[in-house]
């Protein structure tokens, strides 16, 4: 069963398009602020924050809390584990498409 079931390799956490979007952005950008993520994914504060929490709880991203003047500036960075999980998910997606072709 394991041989012909690539679906098993798909990461449940990336079922959400928003979480997948966040990871895509963090894969190609070093450190991204909350506001930039919000702008790029066209989301509301609350919606984005809850997804970021899930990703952080799973150890896929690191959070840096900083300040610009008096304003808080939170930035996010992908972790090694996050990179590995994202790449595994992509590979699983690809192999599923190939298996049909």
């Amino acid at each position: 069963m394991a041989i012909n079931n690539p679906i098993g390799n798909l990461n449940k956490i990336f079922d959400s398009r928003i979480r997948l979007g966040v990871m895509s952005i963090l894969m190609v950008n070093d450190e991204v602020s909350f506001n930039d993520l919000k702008q790029m994914l066209e989301l509301t504060d609350g919606n984005l924050a809850s997804h970021l929490n899930t990703l952080e709880e799973n150890g896929y991203l690191k959070v840096h809390k900083g300040f610009i003047g008096r304003k808080t500036n939170t930035t996010y960075q992908i972790t090694k584990a996050g990179e590995k999980a994202f790449k595994g998910h992509l590979a699983a997606l690809e192999s599923m498409i190939r298996s049909i072709e």
Partner: peptide, 11 residues
């Protein structure tokens, strides 16, 4: 997959 590629490019 094409979404991921687009987001990576645009970001």
């Amino acid at each position: 997959l094409s979404d991921i590629k687009r987001i990576m490019d645009r970001s």
